[in-house]
């Protein structure tokens, strides 16, 4: 038992243990997601977060100790944002053929996402500091976290709101769009990508390939649009 305690105290000091745990927990979450037939409710990030939070609680580990290991994964958010240029580059031909609808839907979708979220939260008495974490929630996580940090929001809360937005969009998109009787797969996919970033895009690819391609385009364009729209939207509520 003392041996275990010694090994534990050694491993729990370095970054290796929690970096490994982060990858393993995500692998477990991803396996659950596949086993559930890629149901958007079985989100791998939510599963990984619950597993890791449980491990931290059971082992009495503080978040900064965990983050000393997990920061190597967190750091990749920046390079991943830059890498989004590649799918955007690949969709330039589709963008050319539908430039006006794409730009109009981008502006309307991105403004609606930020303004309606802030208006509802503000009306329900959410504090200004928390609103700063909410404004960018429709952008893909690395971008949303970057924007929220600049506006004085909390990166962790933003990450959670981004995931919640993604899962909600993936679940409600088909019923909402069917109720509106919209049959254009480009319109359906693009709106889901603008609103619900990568999680919505993954869902759109399951439904129809054209919807998936336009969802990817919507996600990449809204990464740029949100960086401009979120600070403006937030300024209206402060």
């Amino acid at each position: 038992m003392t041996e275990f305690a010694e090994i534990w105290s050694y491993l729990s000091q370095g970054p290796l243990l929690w970096l490994t745990a982060t990858l393993a927990a995500y692998g477990f979450g991803d396996a659950c997601f596949r086993a559930a037939g890629r149901n958007p409710l079985a989100n791998p990030v939510l599963i990984a977060v619950v597993v890791l939070a449980g491990l931290l609680w059971l082992s009495g580990t503080a978040y900064p100790t965990y983050f000393a290991g997990a920061q190597f994964v967190h750091f990749l958010l920046g390079p991943a944002t830059v890498a989004l240029a590649l799918p955007l580059y690949d969709s330039i031909p589709q963008l050319r053929r539908a430039l006006l609808p794409v730009l109009a839907a981008l502006i309307v979708g991105s403004l609606t996402a930020a303004l309606s979220a802030l208006a509802i939260a503000h009306a329900l008495g959410v504090s200004p500091e928390v609103l700063a974490s909410l404004a960018a929630k429709s952008a893909t996580a690395p971008v949303a976290i970057g924007i929220a940090e600049r506006m004085g929001g909390s990166p962790t809360l933003t990450a959670m709101l981004v995931i919640l937005t993604g899962v909600t969009g993936a679940v409600v998109a088909t019923p909402v769009l069917n109720a509106l009787r919209l049959k254009d797969w480009r319109a359906r996919g693009f709106a889901v990508g603008v609103t619900s970033h990568g999680i919505g895009t993954a869902r759109a690819f399951q439904v129809h390939p054209t919807a998936g391609a336009f969802a990817g385009l919507g996600m990449a364009l809204n990464a740029i649009a949100t960086a401009l729209i979120a600070p403006f939207a937030l300024s209206l509520f402060q």
């Binding site: 609808p101 609606t112 509802i120 329900l124 909410l134 509106l180 480009r186 709106a191 889901v192 609103t195």
Partner: peptide, 26 residues
């Protein structure tokens, strides 16, 4: 609760607004 309502409400609104705008302009 307020944040969950804000996220769910705005997600439904922005998917609907974005898709309707795209289809109309197209």
């Amino acid at each position: 609760t307020a944040l969950v309502l804000a996220v769910v409400g705005s997600t439904v609104l922005s998917i609907a607004a974005g898709a309707v705008t795209f289809a109309a302009v197209a």
